[in-house]
Nucleic acid binder design. Structure first.
Length: 423
RNA sequence: GGAGAGAUGGCUGAGCGGUUUAAAGCGGCGGUCUUGAAAACCGUUGAGCUCGCAAGGGCUCCGGGGGUUCGAAUCCCUCUCUCUCCGCCA
């Protein structure tokens, strides 16, 4: 959510900024609603004040043993008009909030302006794509050879975009999670956290998945409105919802392993082959809660922590800065890490690291007490995948294959595979 | 799943229809005293919204939502959560 004061104070500037994202604000409607809000709020509060004063007079008159019939009649009419005004005010307020909740974050000035994925820019590259003296297979063919990666059973158990992993690949999946968690806790100073994989709508509103991306969430049947998490970002970031943190608690750095569930509603026909786009996948997520002045340095650090995983696994990748047209709803600046996939002969996204600034914090009422002012102020929140485990497995299969279709295990990962060097 | 009890500021806890503008204690912060500290004493200490150039006003919040009333922390309905006991259970 953007600062309502900013929208009120300089709607034109906000509107210009959002145009870079391809979002057109209904300036006239917003102005109209805001004028109505102001008038109705003032009127409501005046009437409430009046009611409070009169009601108190009733009490005093009664205590003094006077007759209160006249005052009572007077205040009753006041109550009626108050109720009507309050209803109007709440209606306008709700309409305004509904609109505000759908406005995306403003992008940082360093974010390149662009329309689509095509306009994202390469920031840096690491490693060189390996030359194979044979035609490399893709992960689907490699995974199928011993029935280690089984999509048809996934369909039988659930539906399309689910997979069953067996034997060495199931173990590789577990090893990767363990390896990443150890790296971030031991080398990068994150605290491991284990959270619910089912969350309520308040949490999803807090991190910005609701109301806008509701169609991409799996919801649970039952009386309560509950959803499967699309990312650990939701429960982990929401741990500080409605909190006022002391300054010595910052920065908070959490690493969390979790499954993620996404309907992929907008991706019909995209990546239908293989493990790239599944309804359920696992991920190790980094979340940082920081002071506002530290958030852009934190974004650089967090991105490097994600990169470190790829470097340890010796997987070639490049860092992209997403342009204004491709960046996510809640983000002010995002770096995507793209890993080289020989089977597809191109780079594919394996991590996304973002600074949300105060966008989520405002939705969550997540604050810290600034010692300089003594007042509660909004924190900045960041998160990034480090990494998506399914896609990392895909990258290892395709990059570490030999002519026989065997997979060599990256050195750093061997201790997590009981010393096995090849599968 | 069944029965009962409860939810009040950072914490403990009073209030159960009208000087509550939420008592009191603890904690926090500032001060006096002290070489320094402790103790004691004094003062101070919630959040959000809003009007205003400012000074300074006003409104809302006692788990969430709704209702009764001129007036609700207090009465009613409902949901959520916590605790105790019973049942079931990885």
């Amino acid at each position: 959510m953007l600062d309502p004061k900013l929208i009120r104070g300089d709607l034109q500037a906000v509107s210009e900024q959002l145009k870079k994202r391809g979002v057109v604000l209904d300036v006239v409607r917003l102005n109209t609603l805001e004028e109505q809000r102001k008038a109705l709020q003032v009127k409501t509060q005046d009437l409430q004040n009046e009611r409070n004063i009169r009601s108190k007079a009733v009490g005093q008159a009664k205590a003094a043993g006077k007759n209160v019939d006249d005052i009572l009649k007077e205040v009753k009419d006041l109550g009626d008009s108050l109720k009507a005004t309050e209803e109007q005010f709440e209606k306008v307020q709700a309409e305004l909030n509904e609109y505000l909740a759908l406005i995306p974050n403003l992008t940082h000035e360093s974010v390149p302006v662009g329309k689509s994925e095509e306009d994202n820019q390469v920031v840096r590259s690491w490693g060189t794509p390996k030359k194979f003296h044979f035609t490399p297979k893709d992960h689907v063919d490699l995974g199928a050879q011993h029935n280690w990666m089984d999509f048809s059973t996934g369909v039988k158990l659930s539906q399309a975009r689910f997979v069953v992993l067996r034997g060495p690949l199931a173990k590789l999946n577990r090893a990767l999670a363990q390896f990443m968690l150890d790296m971030h806790t031991e080398l990068h100073g994150y605290q491991e956290i284990c959270v619910p994989f089912i969350v309520n709508s308040d949490s999803l509103f807090g991190t910005g998945q609701l109301p806008k991306a509701k169609e991409d969430l799996f919801s649970l049947m039952g009386d309560n409105e509950l959803y499967l998490i699309p990312t650990a970002e939701v429960p982990v970031t929401n741990t500080i919802r409605d909190e006022i943190l002391e300054s010595d608690q910052l920065p908070m750095k959490y690493v969390c392993y979790s499954p993620c569930f996404r309907k992929e509603a907008g991706s019909y026909g995209k990546d239908t082959r293989g493990m790239i786009r599944q309804h359920q996948f696992e991920k190790v997520e980094l979340v940082q809660i920081v002071r506002p002045e530290d958030s852009y340095q934190a974004l650089e650090n967090l991105t490097m922590h994600a990169e470190a995983v790829l470097q340890k696994l010796e997987l070639p990748y490049r860092v992209m800065v997403l342009c204004t047209g491709d960046i996510g709803f809640t983000s002010a600046k995002t770096y995507d890490l793209e890993v080289w996939l020989p089977g597809q002969d191109r780079y594919r996204e394996i991590s996304s690291c973002s600074n949300m600034e105060a966008f989520q914090a405002r939705r969550m009422a997540a604050r810290w007490r600034n010692p300089a002012t003594g007042k509660p102020e909004l924190v900045h929140t960041l998160n990034g995948s480090a990494l998506a485990i399914g896609r990392t497995m895909v990258a290892i299969l395709e990059n570490y294959q030999d002519e026989d279709g065997r997979i060599h295990i990256p050195k750093a990962l061997q201790p997590y595979m009981n010393g096995v060097e090849v599968i």
